[in-house]
């Protein structure tokens, strides 16, 4: 027998730690998604320059600015002492992943906004004067290929840093054995890349078919007018399949690392291997979020089934549930 009873009943701490609620998984999901969008956009800026208008990613940065702002709002909502949020930017704490993250988040905005200016939409439902101004900035940028290259590099580097940081943020907490793994950084980066490819794929499909709502269709037609269905079908599906395969391999390494480590790490892995998070992890993340989309994507590429939005939707759901489970189960894992 080894039985422990305690008089401590601190809210949010006992009986199981629940310091972080829905805000953190939402932020980690959106942060990873934006990281993926930045990497895809940076790669295409560097590879294609102005020619990238023929491919599917010119508007990824604009979408990134919106999604990152939503993610940062979720992060802000999680703070218990919101009026002091500015304190993050009065210091840099090199040992704190959260301090690194707050500065990275601040630095990726200029890169995203700069990349967004490169490709302003052709039509917008409102703000025509602003659009004309952005177009003039875009022309100015395009006349400076070196600056465009710097923007490409900033998006590629910033995206990788942002994607890895969202994983390291959790991985650095030694007190939570489930998180305490160096592979969480690469896992979140590749999960972010797969969800970004899935989102661009999904939006390209919606923009082609139309939503039925006149306002939304005007906006989408302007934003995604240049997307090429053939490119969407092959390049994005292939990219997503590659990212998902790597993500699956990293998850296997992560679990293997936990199972071959100390007793507390094995107990943490047991939360996903027979414990309370087993069904959502294996059902929604591994099966529905990775294996089924992979199978559908291979069948689509082989021409066996019709091209559809189903794999992209499943990848997005799987990416979100992965973060949700990691945040919840990680808090439940402990040393004692």
């Amino acid at each position: 027998m080894d039985e422990i009873t305690s008089t401590r009943h601190n809210p949010g701490i006992d009986p199981v730690l629940h310091a972080w609620g829905w805000e953190i998984p939402v932020y980690l999901f959106l942060g990873g998604l934006v990281a993926g969008l930045m990497v895809l956009a940076g790669y295409h800026i560097l590879k294609a320059g102005r020619q990238q208008e023929k491919v599917s990613y010119p508007y990824a940065p604009m979408l990134g600015v919106i999604l990152l702002s939503l993610g940062m709002n979720a992060l802000f909502l999680d703070l218990a002492n919101k009026p002091l949020v500015w304190r993050l930017y009065l210091t840099f704490q090199p040992a704190s992943p959260m301090s690194w993250g707050s500065w990275i988040l601040l630095l990726v905005y200029p890169a995203l906004i700069g990349a967004a200016i490169l490709h302003p939409p052709e039509r917008v439902p409102f703000g025509q004067r602003l659009l004309a101004l952005v177009r003039s900035w875009s022309e100015w940028l395009h006349q400076r290929p070196r600056l465009v290259q710097v923007l490409g590099l900033a998006n590629l580097g910033g995206g990788i840093a942002l994607g890895i940081y969202t994983g390291i943020l959790l991985g650095a907490f030694g007190a939570r054995p489930l998180w305490n793994s160096a592979v969480l950084g690469p896992l979140f980066l590749f999960s972010g890349l797969s969800t970004a490819a899935a989102l661009m794929h999904l939006l390209a499909m919606v923009s082609r078919s139309g939503t039925g709502a006149p306002f939304a269709d005007v906006a989408l037609a302007g934003v995604f007018r240049l997307m090429d269905p053939a490119h969407c079908k092959h390049v994005m599906v292939r990219a997503d399949a590659s990212f998902l395969t790597i993500e699956l391999a990293i998850i296997a390494l992560w679990l293997l690392g936990l199972l071959t480590a100390t007793g507390v790490h094995q107990q943490a892995a047991a939360l996903l291997l027979g414990g309370p998070w087993t069904a959502p992890f294996w059902g929604l993340v591994i099966l529905a979020g990775i294996l089924v989309p992979l199978l559908l994507q291979f069948l689509e590429l082989a021409g066996r089934i019709r091209h559809s939005a189903v794999p992209a939707v499943l990848v997005l759901i799987g990416g979100f549930v992965l973060r949700w489970i990691l945040v919840e189960a990680g808090q439940a894992s402990r040393w004692s």
């Binding site: 401590r8 601190n10 949010g12 701490i13 006992d14 730690l17 310091a19 972080w20 999680d78 703070l79 218990a80 002492n81 919101k82 002091l84 949020v85 304190r87 993050l88 704190s96 959260m98 907490f173 030694g174 007190a175 939570r176 808090q331 402990r334 040393w335 004692s336």
Partner: peptide
Amino acid sequence: QKCIGCKACIASCPYD
């Protein structure tokens, strides 16, 4: 006066 309530320290404490 500096704590923003991010709860990183809470998650990092093995003793809760």
